[in-house]
């Protein structure tokens, strides 16, 4: 008789208020294991900022899209699959899926905030970033970029202005942007946390016309001046007529770069 032992996969659902550190915590967990890992963040496919970031850090990570819940229910091939629940999703709305998956629930909470909803919901509570604003009073503004390439210095100016309050009070901002050097950059800001600089993600350079991959940003705060934000981001974009010129320059530069050999 042959006994087939199917590896039991674990589903870990992670929830928190905006900016408490869900993606950061998941990143830490993945770093500590050699197991195969899956990741799913419902309702974020239009700008998969966190998924893109994690994928660049862990190329073997299996990303599930919205609509692939059935694959999770059937039992994924990954040993552990993290479900990152965006703060703006109603926990009761996703409850049927979590129940059917028999998931372990982790809440990342701010030490001083009112976290009753999350602590009641969770099997495990983890202390996260300090958050000063109640999630319920916040606006969210998303910008979906469709192949636009941004100028780095312009983006840096916009990001500084935006995070310092030029376009409304911002408590959280993150984005992925295609820049003129062909790389995709990740920006991450949480109020009262040390600001992270833009960093290029470990993904292939795009140097053949307008990028056909998802990019954009998500800004959370109060009194956001959405039209001004949209116009400023537009003003940061390289004109389509100049894209080919920039990309040719980068290609030539890369072709002449000496290879560095580590001894």
């Amino acid at each position: 008789m042959i006994i087939v032992i199917k590896k039991i996969s674990m589903i870990i659902a992670v929830a928190s208020p905006s900016g408490a550190g869900k993606t950061h915590w998941i990143h830490q967990q993945i770093a500590q294991t050699n197991e195969s890992i899956g990741y799913f963040s419902p309702k974020t496919d239009f700008i998969p900022i966190d998924a893109t970031y994690l994928q660049s850090e862990y190329p073997q990570l299996k990303i599930y899209q919205t609509g692939e819940e059935a694959a999770l229910l059937a039992g994924s091939d990954q040993t552990i699959t993290y479900i990152e629940i965006p703060w703006y999703l109603d926990l009761s709305g996703i409850e049927p899926l979590l129940t059917s998956l028999n998931s372990h629930r982790v809440a990342i909470i701010s030490p001083d905030a009112n976290n009753t909803e999350f602590t009641t919901w969770a099997d495990e509570v983890v202390s996260g970033n300090q958050i000063t604003k109640l999630t319920t009073s916040l606006q969210i503004h998303r910008g979906v970029l469709t192949g636009e390439i941004l100028d780095f210095d312009s983006l840096a100016t916009f990001w500084l202005e935006m995070t310092q309050g030029a376009y409304g009070e911002v408590v959280r901002a993150k984005g992925i942007f295609d820049l003129e050097d062909g790389q995709i950059y990740f920006g991450d800001f949480t109020a009262n946390q040390p600001e992270l600089e833009f960093k290029p993600l470990n993904l292939p350079r795009w140097l053949d016309g307008k990028p056909v991959r998802k990019s954009g940003f998500e800004i959370v705060g109060n009194n956001l001046k959405q039209a001004e934000i949209a116009q400023t981001v537009k003003d940061c974009c390289v004109p389509e007529s100049a894209i080919s010129y920039y990309q040719q320059q980068v290609k030539e530069s890369l072709a002449t770069e000496p290879e560095v050999e580590l001894v």
Binding site: D153, S154, A156, T157, F158, D235, C236, C237, V238
Partner: peptide, 9 residues
């Protein structure tokens, strides 16, 4: 101008 945004402004 140090950037496209600065030029526009």
């Amino acid at each position: 101008y140090p950037s496209l945004l600065a030029e526009k402004r």
